[in-house]
Write a protein that binds this DNA or RNA. Structure first.
Length: 266
DNA sequence: ATCCGGACTA
DNA sequence: TAGTCAGGAT
């Protein structure tokens, strides 16, 4: 492992030496459990680590395996998801668990066949669970790569999968931040960094798209309705017909007469 | 190109 | 109060 690290880009080798190895904030990244990584990374996409960890631990206690989750009802899953943001992700996770329990995991190259699993989550599973030399590119990592390796990332050395992924993510969060990167405050990738040498923050890697305000939004209205629905099992549909229709369209609710109820198992 | 949930922060 | 945030589906 040390041998491999010493043969890759010196900056990366320094980075690996620098990153925190406790892993306390990311228990799932040491489990080598694909299901655990899937659950946690999807949860993380909706909120931040500090808030996710308790949810994750409760989730894994309640549904330790994909088949345990598959056996749950969508209503239970949505109720447990309360506070984690987009309920779509919970539904996709539930669907994915059913498929995994039923027919097993897709091939390593086809993880994105699972509902709600895109390039990032697939890479995270390969990296953190499988230990594959794959770098999960979230927006933070993409920013680090764009600044430090504008001509392309040379690739993760074999045998250093999760260490490199964790290191890049930590670096993106703590040093190579979007607005005020701490280049000269001990960044392990400082040497040879074109962005730091240019003395500029550079443009943000993906041009940010503004999001419509939350107050009064359909997101908020859906949230109100779904909270009621998961808490009581039903809610009067015409209380907010548009939001109700939106939930139904997403498979998160079903109309039963005048009330909105949880959908049947698909 | 837009939508999606809600907590955090300036 | 207003802006920011992130991956995936459509």
């Amino acid at each position: 492992m040390t041998d491999v690290a010493s043969t890759c880009d010196p900056g990366v080798s320094r980075l690996i030496g620098w990153f925190r190895t406790d892993g306390a904030d990311f228990p799932w990244r040491r489990t080598r459990d694909r299901y655990a990584v899937l659950v946690a990374e999807v949860q993380l996409q909706s909120t931040q680590v500090g808030r996710v960890v308790p949810y994750f631990e409760a989730w894994m206690t309640r549904w330790p395996t994909a088949c345990d989750l598959a056996a749950a009802s969508l209503g239970e899953v949505l109720a447990a998801w309360q506070g984690l943001g987009y309920p779509r992700r919970a539904r996709n996770l539930h669907l994915a668990a059913r498929r995994i329990c039923d027919v097993g995991w897709p091939g390593a190259a086809d993880l994105t066949d699972l509902p709600g699993v895109g390039p990032y989550t697939a890479a995270a599973i390969r990296c953190f669970a499988d230990g594959a030399p794959v770098l999960p590119e979230d927006t933070n990592v993409a920013r680090v790569l764009a600044r430090r390796f504008p001509d392309g990332w040379p690739g993760t050395p074999q045998g250093l999968g999760w260490e490199v992924g964790q290191a890049f993510m930590d670096l993106g969060r703590e040093w190579c931040t979007a607005r005020a990167p701490r280049c000269d405050d001990g960044c392990p990738l400082r040497a040879g960094c074109p962005a730091a040498s240019a003395g500029a923050v550079l443009e943000r890697t993906p041009p940010r798209r503004r999001q419509s305000r939350f107050d009064g939004s359909m997101r908020q209205r859906r949230g109100v309705l779904l909270r009621e629905l998961t808490a009581h099992g039903s809610v009067v549909a015409d209380r907010d017909a548009a939001a109700a229709a939106s939930l139904v369209a997403d498979g998160l609710a079903r109309v039963d007469g005048a009330v909105l109820v949880l959908p049947e198992h698909p």
